[in-house]
Design a protein around this nucleic acid. Structure first.
Length: 599
RNA sequence: GCCGACGUGGCUCAGUGGUAGAGCAGCUGUUUCGUAAACAGCAGGUCACCGGUUCGAAUCCGGUCGUCGGCUCCA
């Protein structure tokens, strides 16, 4: 992280927008410096949709300060100051920063590799250590806006002092800035926390506790439907399901190594009658005990145990968020026990299974990360260089053999082994880990797992940890945002709402709903004495895929007037035909082709 | 956990020291209506919690809890 930040600070991309944003961040620093002459500067890189700069200031910034800074920035832009670049020898540069009291900049210089050119940029009186590149003058900066203030640790480490980070963005044209801000507003409406409330999917109770969400009936339908899908696919693909408890002796996790490496992520020990229990933060040790329950033959392998495993992790309070970061979660987990020569095939099969699910869910924006350990961090990772290099090499081979592109993330591995993480892009363009496949030779050692080989001798199996569709919490928070709450038919809590035109149609509507319910379709009737327009508006807000409007004409002709969520009124359809089409669409368990709407 | 902001009926939000408000939702009644919100009435709030300042606190101050945006961490 620290080396990357230095990198960010000193080598911004060179296209005009990036250079302009980089210059804007300098203008911001200049403005802050005017208000706080003693401000110490951290780093000020360009990021995906803008920029930030970190400051060490005598007091914390308020929203009013941001306005003041913006005003000063506007003035600096108007002054149209030229940016001058100059280079200095290391010692001179270092002395300059020290004289300016810029201790963080001194640290940056000290960390620059030998022989690196050390450059400064100056506009007006303001001088800043920076590699650039910049635009030629502040006057060429277009529309900008400061977005927020946040605390950020110097160099990203909790051990370092916390600086104040100001986030901002800039565009060449005002209209571009405006449409970006509009886009953020739109994204807010897709926020799963907002939609979760609006659609009655989940809630939190401060009495129950933060990070412990409660699934409301509608959310429970989405979850159950997804869980059934997961289990059905797993059965098809040769997994066996098990159920294991969420508590275990602390000792289990001492053997596994979790206690040593993962203690901070666990709820504290419960002690009773001299026994120590913990809530499990992972399911693997439980599945391992099942593997060990009998003597295994190579003929049985691979053994694949799957479970929607509920677990508890002590997430720090500031990390919690809606359904995506929680303390109680259920992972679509599985552990594959196999022989050395089965590893790569099993990893590949798991990846292909995950890709197939994404296709059905309509998820296309993702990339593979090979998550490697950090050899320098022996505290976080099991210290066994041979195992690491073997497993990491193996996963690279898998990518090569599948001909799949990927990138590597050092320091992203699990404590026991490297991972293939599938990184999804969420609505805000941020990546989150959803599915994961991990190769592990550590836990089999810890628990002394064995199977009898063809040669009659004992061999150690390899374990593959496979998180299929993440935790139900994170996956569904992702899907809510991905679909903007408009779930495809197979996942929609309420698939159809029947709207009666007048009270006299209610009985017929109820009978129709009953008939569809009997086929496993989720149908409700809006039998209130409200105007049709109002019933439509409400069903639309609830994002129900189909509305069936029923009045005299329909009852007479045996039709329903179909209104499709995305398309509006598509006119009357024979009842039997609609039901058959809907049933087919729901059973397909995939993105809708909209057979009904396509007519 | 750290930095910052915020917390007012079920929901969305007004209200900056002087008797707690609106819209939607809810309930009751009227309306029976064909593709995005009929009309009227009623009810609903220890202004997150605890303490302080003040003749008087939703409003000012302190603390606690919770939420949000970041940092760190992560499925």
């Amino acid at each position: 992280m620290s080396s990357e930040s230095v990198e960010d600070e000193l080598s911004a991309p060179s296209d005009f927008l990036s250079r302009m944003r980089h210059t804007t961040t300098h203008v911001m620093a200049q403005a802050v410096n005017e208000i706080f002459p003693d401000a110490k500067l951290g780093i000020g890189p360009v990021i995906e949709n803008g920029f930030y700069y970190d400051f060490d200031l005598p007091r914390s910034l308020t929203p009013d300060d941001l306005e003041e800074i913006e005003r000063r920035m506007t003035r600096i832009v108007k002054e149209d100051l030229k940016l001058n670049r100059f280079v200095e020898p290391r010692e001179v540069a270092r002395q300059r920063c020290e004289n300016m009291g810029q201790s963080y900049k001194v640290q940056l210089i000290d960390d620059l590799p030998e022989g690196e050119e050390i450059s400064f940029f100056q506009q007006g009186d303001f001088i800043d250590l920076c590699r650039g590149p910049h635009i030629e003058s502040t006057g060429r900066i277009g529309a900008f806006k400061l977005m927020s203030v946040a605390g950020a640790y110097w160099r990203g480490s909790e051990k370092n002092p916390m600086l104040q980070r100001i986030y901002g963005t800039a565009f060449q044209k005002k209209s571009q800035l405006e449409s970006y801000l509009e886009m953020l507003e739109e994204a807010k409406k897709r926020d799963h926390k907002v939609l979760g409330k609006q659609l009655g999917l989940f809630m939190n109770s401060s009495l129950i506790g933060p990070g412990l969400p409660l699934w409301l009936p509608n959310g429970a339908i989405v979850r159950r439907t997804l869980e059934r899908f997961i289990q059905d696919v797993e059965i098809e693909r040769g997994y066996e399901h098990v159920y294991t408890p969420v508590l275990a002796h602390k000792n289990l996790y001492e053997v596994s190594g979790h206690w040593e490496h993962y203690k901070d992520g666990m709820f504290p020990v419960m002690e009773i009658d001299g026994e120590e229990f913990v809530l499990r933060p992972m399911n693997c040790p439980h599945h391992i005990q099942i593997f060990k329950n009998e003597l295994r033959s190579y003929r049985e392998l691979p053994v694949r145990y799957a479970e929607l495993g509920t677990m508890y992790r002590w997430e720090k309070s500031g990390e919690l968020s809606g359904l995506s970061r929680v303390r109680a979660m259920t992972l679509s987990d599985a552990h594959i026990f196999c022989s050395e020569d089965q590893v790569k095939d099993e990893v590949k099969a798991a990846i292909l299974m995950i890709e197939d699910a994404y296709r059905r869910l309509g998820i296309t924006e993702y990339r593979y990360r090979l998550s490697l350990h950090d050899p320098k961090n022996t505290e976080k990772y099991v210290d066994n260089p041979e195992l690491w290099s073997k497993a990491e090499g193996e996963l690279r081979e898998v990518f090569a053999e599948l001909d799949m592109p990927y990138y590597e993330g050092v320091g992203e591995a699990a404590f026991y082994g490297p991972k293939i993480d599938i990184q999804l892009k969420n609505v805000l363009g941020r990546e989150e880990t959803v599915s994961t496949v991990q190769v592990d030779r550590h836990l089999p050692n810890q628990f002394e797992l064995e199977f009898i080989g063809e040669d009659g001798k004992r061999h150690r199996p390899v374990m593959i940890h496979r998180g299929y569709l993440s935790t139900m919490e994170r996956m569904i928070s992702f899907l809510i945002e991905h679909y903007a709450g408009a779930f495809p038919v197979w996942l929609a809590p309420e698939q159809v709402r029947i709207l009666s035109i007048a009270d006299r149609h209610n009985e017929w509507c109820e009978a129709l709903a009953k008939r569809m319910n009997a086929l496993g379709l989720r149908v409700k009737v809006d039998a209130r004495s409200e105007k049709t327009g109002k019933k439509i508006a409400e069903a639309q807000i609830r994002k129900i895929p189909y509305m069936l409007i029923v009045g005299d004409r329909d009852i007479e002709n045996g039709t329903v007037s179909v209104r499709v969520r995305e398309k509006g009124d598509i006119g009357p359809r024979p009842v039997d035909e609609f039901i058959a089409d809907l049933k087919a669409e729901a059973d397909a368990r995939g993105l809708p082709d909209h057979p009904i709407a396509s007519v």
